[in-house]
């Protein structure tokens, strides 16, 4: 599949729309406590904004946007954020993923749980975004020599 389009309408529209989709994805992740949303949906929205640029632009441009080598390592960091929050709670004397014992000073247990959920949502969003982009990259990479 050839990357990139020559139509100016597609180039302009994808360039305008992509940051707004990304902003909305951030909103969905960080407002997930009060409205429908959370890490999975926000991560899918962030991935869609990146894949929109990948469909519309040529390869030189979209590699500046999000490099394909960063896909798997950033996904691993997302999983490690989740594990790390669990292990911090374990080290502080609670159960695994028991956010009530996270070492943030001056908060009651319910607030600690609130921020623990926020931390793992960020980890989930990062992992989902990078893994979806990485699957897209791997599926479409290097098929110019053989016409599939």
């Amino acid at each position: 599949m050839k990357h990139g389009s020559s139509s100016p309408i597609i180039l302009l529209l994808s360039r305008v729309l992509s940051p707004y989709i990304m902003l909305f994805g951030m909103y969905v992740i960080f407002h997930g406590h009060y409205s429908p949303g959370g890490g999975f949906q926000g991560g899918a929205l962030l991935a869609s904004s990146i894949i929109l640029i990948r469909i519309a632009m040529e390869e030189k441009v979209h590699q500046l946007h999000f490099n394909k080598d960063y896909g798997i390592p950033l996904g691993a960091i997302g999983v490690l954020i989740f594990f790390g929050v669990g292990f911090i709670a374990l080290i502080m004397g609670g159960y695994f993923l028991d956010y009530g014992l996270l070492p943030f000073p001056g908060m009651i247990t319910a607030e600690l749980r609130f921020y623990g959920i926020l931390l793992i949502e960020v980890g989930v969003g990062l992992a989902v975004m990078t893994i979806l982009v990485s699957i897209y990259d791997n599926l479409l990479e290097e098929d110019d020599d053989e016409s599939i």
């Binding site: 406590h33 409205s35 959370g38 956010y99 319910a110 749980r113 609130f114 623990g116 959920i117 949502e121």
Partner: peptide, 15 residues
């Protein structure tokens, strides 16, 4: 009460 989170789905999913 437990997690100070109005969205129950987030609370079930994350906590």
């Amino acid at each position: 009460k437990d997690a100070n989170t109005p969205n129950m789905v987030t609370s079930v999913l994350g906590d």
